[in-house]
Simulated assay, not measured.
Amino acid sequence: MSAALLRLEQVVAGWTAPATRPLDLLVDAGSIVGLCGANGAGKSTLLAAVAGRAQVFHGRLWKKPKIRCALQTQEAPPLAGLPLSGRELLALTGAAADGLPSWLADCLERRLDRLSGGQRHYLGLWAILNAPAELLLLDEPTNNLDAAGVAHLGAALRRRAGAGCGIVLVSHDPAFVAATCDRVCRLEAPDGR
């Protein structure tokens, strides 16, 4: 029997005003749920609401008590002049380098601002994927990744789910969603798009 980690009942979320249609969603331990829909449907806003960054205007958002969540956003932190290496980033998040693909493991001693956009993105994802959390919230995790990165990410997500982690991911990549997610929830924009 699965254990519920997250339950949304008719949740309407937003920042200063409601930005989503009501949504019901259940995420169990070990499951990967995809959120799909047009731009403006509120997918990222719903992830932010689950993480406590956006407001819930209506409905009920329940998380397992004392659950640890890790959120990956599309926002790229400014790195110019930041003398932080890939290994130091992983240490800050408590993530291990074990399992990193060789094309990224070989870059761990380099400063983040000297890595390519794809390398930085995947390293940031790896830090989230391996953070000590029971619920992962991923916003467009395949952005900036090549085919090898997407394949490695899918396998890493399956391993985390297999270890009992619940995962909610937003994606516009239908092939990735079909290959990775156990269930897909399609959101419609508040204006019906």
Rank of each mutant, 00 (worst) to 15 (best):
L169H: 05
L82W: 15
L104T: 07
I167Y: 00
R120C: 12
A156G: 03
G118M: 07
T180A: 03
I167W: 00
V56E: 01
A161F: 01
A48K: 14
V50M: 10
A97K: 11
A175K: 09
I32V: 15
P77W: 12
A13Y: 05
G154F: 04
T73P: 03
P190S: 06
L82E: 13
E9V: 10
C181A: 15
T180F: 12
A156W: 07
T142E: 06
D146T: 09
L46K: 00
G94D: 10
A151P: 09
A76Q: 15
G164V: 01
A80Q: 12
A17H: 12
L187P: 02
V27C: 13
D98V: 12
R193Q: 14
R183P: 04
L82N: 09
Q119V: 02
L71C: 01
K63Q: 14
G117P: 09
I67P: 09
G94M: 09
A178Y: 06
A163S: 11
A19D: 05
V184Y: 06
G34L: 08
P83R: 14
H172W: 10
A148H: 14
L137F: 04
D28M: 13
L8K: 05
S85N: 10
A189L: 02
L129W: 07
G59A: 02
W126E: 09
A48W: 12
L138P: 02
G149I: 03
D113M: 03
L136F: 02
A151I: 08
S2A: 14
G124C: 05
A151Q: 14
G124W: 12
L8G: 03
G166R: 01
V56P: 04
R60I: 12
R111V: 05
L153S: 07
W15Q: 13
C36N: 10
L123W: 06
V27R: 00
A13G: 03
W15D: 06
R158F: 04
M1V: 13
H172N: 02
S171R: 01
D24V: 05
G154T: 10
G118T: 06
L136Y: 02
V11D: 02
C69G: 14
F176S: 00
T16W: 06
V11E: 01
G52F: 04
V168K: 01
V150S: 07
N39L: 11
G59S: 08
R87A: 15
G34Q: 00
Y122C: 06
G42R: 01
